[in-house]
Simulated assay, not measured.
Amino acid sequence: MLAIVAAIIFGLGFLLDLLGARIAPGISGTTFMLLGLTLLALHQGGVGTAGVRGGGGWRTRTRR
């Protein structure tokens, strides 16, 4: 989920950078790119990757 949000943030940052626009003082395309990198780092760290079915993934299964 965080990776999808990061892709959207990267897209917005890319468009702002192409247009040379600023939304508010201090918020530019570079700000969106840094926010996207932060979200990707959180995704790679395992934040927000819980399963929909109560977190039961391959790690929680026991061997028989």
Rank of each mutant, 00 (worst) to 15 (best):
M1E: 13
M1P: 15
L2R: 08
L2Q: 03
A3P: 04
I4R: 12
I4G: 08
I4N: 08
V5L: 05
A6R: 00
I8S: 10
I8P: 03
I8R: 15
I9E: 08
F10N: 05
F10Q: 08
F10H: 07
F10K: 05
F10C: 02
G11Y: 02
G11Q: 03
G11F: 04
G11M: 09
G11P: 01
L12I: 13
L12G: 09
L12H: 01
G13T: 02
G13K: 03
G13W: 05
F14G: 10
F14L: 14
L15P: 00
L15H: 07
L16W: 01
D17Y: 07
L18I: 12
L18D: 10
L19M: 14
L19Q: 11
G20Y: 01
A21T: 11
A21V: 12
I23D: 08
A24W: 08
A24E: 10
A24I: 13
A24R: 15
G26W: 01
I27D: 09
S28H: 10
S28V: 04
S28I: 00
G29P: 00
T30A: 15
T30M: 11
T30G: 11
T30D: 07
T31D: 04
T31K: 04
T31M: 06
F32N: 06
M33Q: 11
L34S: 10
L34C: 11
L34N: 06
L34R: 06
L34T: 13
L35F: 09
G36Q: 03
G36E: 05
G36R: 02
G36T: 05
L37F: 14
L37A: 14
L37W: 04
L37I: 10
T38P: 05
T38L: 15
T38R: 05
T38H: 01
L39M: 14
L39V: 00
L40W: 01
A41N: 06
L42P: 01
L42R: 04
H43I: 01
H43N: 14
H43M: 01
H43D: 15
Q44P: 00
G45Q: 04
G45S: 07
G46M: 03
V47D: 08
V47P: 03
V47S: 08
V47Q: 09
V47F: 13
V47I: 14
G48P: 01
G48K: 03
G48C: 08
G48I: 07
T49G: 09
T49R: 12
A50W: 05
G51P: 02
G51V: 02
R53D: 15
G56S: 11
G56M: 13
G56D: 12
G57F: 01
G57Y: 05
W58V: 14
W58D: 12
W58A: 15
W58M: 08
R59A: 06
R59H: 07
R59S: 09
T60D: 14
T60Q: 11
T60S: 15
T60E: 15
R61S: 09
R61Y: 00
R61T: 10
T62N: 11
T62I: 13
T62S: 13
T62A: 15
R63S: 10
R63H: 07
R63V: 12
R63C: 06
R64Q: 06
